[in-house]
Each structure stands twice: as structure tokens, then as C-alpha cells.
């Protein structure tokens, strides 16, 4: 299947010399939800802004549905909806005027029934005649989504959709993204909340210092997450793992005072019973034990600190 969004060798250097993006290569598939994870200043917003036409790239190529974002900008932009990170500060227009304007700006003929559906789905229909200054923060954020959906885009960018949003609203936002998935829209969201990526995404990309350092299926990442370590503090230190225990996935701590057993939590047999028995038979005694699990956050921090 050809990707709906393809990014090749994309570079961005700002006039002050700051290199925001370095040789980005990424393909997004139709209908998926892709989470772009990265710390503040990693280049997430710059990447989105280039694809949407708000920032000029220094080098590389981006295509949307096969169209080049520069040469065929009308084709690409009409397919894209953008929900920016910052709430806008406009105040006096009504909700209905704003979504109507958005639809028209993107060249779509008037369709009140469609706009009504979007507003109803985002729980804004009751507020259609309210001025923007009367809306709460959560409503304003939903209005930005409604505006982005007003022209029926096939790709939607959500830039930090839950930044500065309380827990309840964040839950609501996740439900909104699920609704978008069901309506067939490809969603690319940026976030620095790991749990958000975990909750919503099909695939996860990690960006740091302008470089994509990882792109992986969420399930595979979760499988990595599913690995646990059992740490056994030994009564007497070992110099090497005894031959009798060679069949087990065992490691020895640097000072030889602990054995570390790695196992899959989701497998039918973790092998802990057998290991305990084998340890007893080999005469290895331990004073304490505990288990650890690497989280997506650990993986993320490893990647970000390592690069």
C-alpha cells in the first residue's frame, strides 16, 4: 500500500543557523494513527508546519497522496487539516461563522448538514451561535478540531492536542481521536505524553534534536514493554553463571551479587518455577528478590539521552 504521506530527506535550518530537522524520512499509511513523540524543541511542530505549508523546508521532499507539497500545494493542502498547538485569540466571531469560514477558505461548497454533524460530534452544536470569547478552553480546542475537519480532510495533524488540558478533557480528546479513526481519517499527532501515544496510536515515532530516532509499531513496542526482569540478590557472590543454569536467560550483575532473569510476562510459562527449583538444586541461595519492568518512558529516555 502506498503511503498517504511520504517524507524524504527533509531538512530545515532556520535563518539564525538553528538546524530544526535533519534528514527526516517517514512514511505514514492511510487510516493509521501515528504518534510523533519527542521532548520540547525536538522539531515536532516544525515538521508539521512544513507539511502544512506554514514553514518552508530547506531541503528534501514531501508528498501527500502522491502530490508534492510545493508544486501541487492546492491538492495537498485541501487534503490536510491542521489543529495547531496554541489556542487562537480571536474573540468576536461565532462558532458557526468560524467553521463556515474554514470550509469556504479551503474551497469547499457550502454544506450546512456536514458542518452540523461535525459540531454535534464534537459537542459544540449547542454553542454554534456563541462568540468565541464565551467558550471554555476545552471548547476552544474542540473548535480548532472542528475547523480543521470543516473541509473534510483525509489527513489530520493534531499538534499537542492535550497540552495544558486537564485529565477529563484529555480523556475526551482520546475519544475524539477514536471517532476520527472510525471515520477513516489518517491522524498524525504530536505529544510529549507517553501515555497519550500508548493510548491512541497504531505506530509511534520518536523525534529528538531534529532526527527521527525510532519508528515502530505500538504493539511491538508494547511487547518490549511486556518483558520483565527478576532480580535475585545472592547470599554469596558468583564469578560466573553456573553451567547447570545455562538453559535460562540469565545475567549476572557486575559485582556478581545478583542474578537477573529476563522473562515474558505474557507467555503461558514464565519459567520462574523451574528456575527456582534449578537454583535450589545448584545450591544457590538468595536473600532478596524483586522484579522490574522497562516502560515506554524508559525506552524513550534511553533513545533521547543516547542520541
Amino acid at each position: 500500500m502506498s503511503p498517504i504521506l511520504s517524507i524524504e530527506n527533509l531538512d530545515k535550518t532556520y535563518p539564525d543557523g538553528f538546524q530544526a530537522l535533519r534528514n527526516i524520512n517517514l512514511a505514514i499509511h492511510k487510516g493509521e494513527i501515528f504518534a510523533l513523540l519527542g521532548p520540547n524543541g525536538a522539531g515536532k511542530t516544525t515538521l508539521i508546519s512544513i507539511i502544512c505549508g506554514i514553514v518552508n523546508a530547506t531541503g528534501g521532499r514531501v508528498t501527500v497522496d502522491g502530490y508534492d507539497i510545493q508544486r501541487d500545494y492546492r491538492q495537498t493542502r485541501s487534503r490536510i487539516g491542521l489543529v495547531p498547538q496554541e489556542l487562537t485569540r480571536d474573540a468576536f466571531e461565532t462558532v458557526w461563522d468560524k467553521v463556515s469560514f474554514s470550509r469556504m477558505l479551503f474551497g469547499k461548497p457550502r454544506d450546512d448538514a456536514y458542518l452540523e454533524k461535525v459540531l454535534r460530534d464534537l459537542s459544540l452544536w449547542e454553542k454554534r451561535n456563541s462568540q468565541l470569547r464565551m467558550l471554555s478552553g476545552g471548547m476552544k480546542r474542540r473548535l480548532l478540531i472542528a475547523k480543521a475537519l470543516a473541509h473534510e480532510p483525509s489527513v489530520l495533524f493534531l499538534d499537542e492536542p492535550t497540552a495544558g488540558v486537564d485529565v477529563e478533557l484529555r480523556q475526551g480528546m482520546w475519544e475524539t481521536v477514536e471517532y476520527l479513526r472510525q471515520s477513516g481519517v489518517t491522524v498524525i499527532l504530536t505529544t510529549h505524553y507517553i501515555e497519550e501515544a500508548e493510548e491512541m496510536a497504531d505506530r509511534i515515532g520518536v523525534i529528538n534534536q531534529g532526527e527521527i530516532v525510532l519508528v515502530e509499531d505500538k504493539k511491538q513496542l508494547m511487547r518490549k514493554l511486556g518483558t520483565k526482569q527478576l532480580v535475585l540478590q545472592l547470599r554469596e557472590s558468583l564469578e560466573a553463571i553456573p553451567a547447570a543454569l545455562a538453559d535460562y536467560d540469565l545475567g549476572l550483575s557486575e559485582d556478581g551479587s545478583a542474578l537477573i532473569y529476563t522473562y515474558e510476562t505474557q507467555s503461558a510459562r514464565t519459567g520462574i518455577d523451574d528456575l527456582m527449583q534449578a537454583l535450589g538444586e545448584a545450591g544457590i541461595r538468595f536473600t532478596d528478590l524483586h522484579t522490574t519492568q522497562s516502560s515506554l518512558e524508559d525506552i524513550f529516555l534511553d533513545l533521547v539521552n543516547g542520541s
Binding site: C52, G53, L87, T88, R89, D90, G107
Partner: peptide
Amino acid sequence: FPRFTGTIYEVLSAPVS
């Protein structure tokens, strides 16, 4: 005004020349 309120992003990302 749209530059001030931040709504200029919409015009810049729209399929208008």
C-alpha cells in the same frame, strides 16, 4: 489581526494562492 490572534496559520495552510 490574524497574525496577532494566531489564526493566520489557517490562511497559510489553505489551498489559496
